[in-house]
Amino acid sequence: MKKLGIGLVAGVLTLSLAACGGSGSSDAGADAGAADGYPEDDITMIVTYAAGGPTDIAGRAVAAAFEKELGVSVVVENVEGASGAVGSAQLSQARPDGLTIAMTTASAVSRVPLIEEVGFTQDDVIPVGTVTEGAGVILVPADSPYKTIDDLVEAAKKNPDKITIGAAGAQTPQAVEIERMKSEYDVPLQLVPFQGDAPSLTALLGKNVDAIVPSYNAAVRAQHEAGAIRPLAIMGEERADYLPEVPTLAESGFEDLIYGVSTFILIAPKGTPEAVVAKLEETLEAAVKDPDTYKALDGDVLVPEKFTGSKDLTKKMKDESAALKDVLQELFG
């Protein structure tokens, strides 16, 4: 009941914000440089996925740390839809005063607008910083005949489109890398999209697919510790601290396949004063290291040791979308 009350308030708040935005958007940003006093009011954090999901859990943990840091209320509002693009689009239209921010995924901002007409582009938002980074892990059942990534690749080449590999969705960063493996490296794996990491793990354990590419989440970790599954490769740029013996795809002969990483980021609308972005950045950096938040974020696995701030994250996302633009349009356009 409590949450519903907040929800109602947030709803009203959004309405009034939207109303302000209509009339006063021209002078937005005029008060640039005035980060002193920020935040002068409560903050609305749009979470671009459903309540209760991983993005929501991360968003609420960050919101709690922001409240502690900034001394104002941070009201979480779930605006789901179109793989996170609906909420991101709404953020891009919000008044750029730092009082409306959003928790979303990097792909909702950098990839979805390349595929779909969602009413905003990557340039309409400012990435504030990285919250978590979950590299995909190529996994097989423990009793699978494939002991290494090379085994799997060889099998796929021998039996084109017969070796099945489950992903959390066709547009997930991990699935796109599998498709690129096929188109750029001639490894004809058969991608089978599922509706999230959990069903794909069930399918692997039930022997319905040969391999899967989730992040190293709690459920995967439990199965790994129980000895039910075997990791073959990491889909990020570097090896993971939590699986140091597992090679990356890049070092296994797929140099370009470094984007199979699910990244949660914080964004603000374009035009948000630099000083405010800097303040948000600083707050976020402190937030992900706050012990409670770190724990809620599953920090040992997902929070990168080195914080990525606004500038670096923007560049990273630009590089990624430049590299993937053609592939994405070919696959989904």
């Binding site: 547009q171 509706q195 989904f332």
Partner: peptide, 13 residues
């Protein structure tokens, strides 16, 4: 549900 793209949406977000 398989490709992840949107369809039959009459271009309504």
């Amino acid at each position: 549900p398989i490709r992840g793209t949107s369809r039959f949406n009459f271009d309504m977000p």
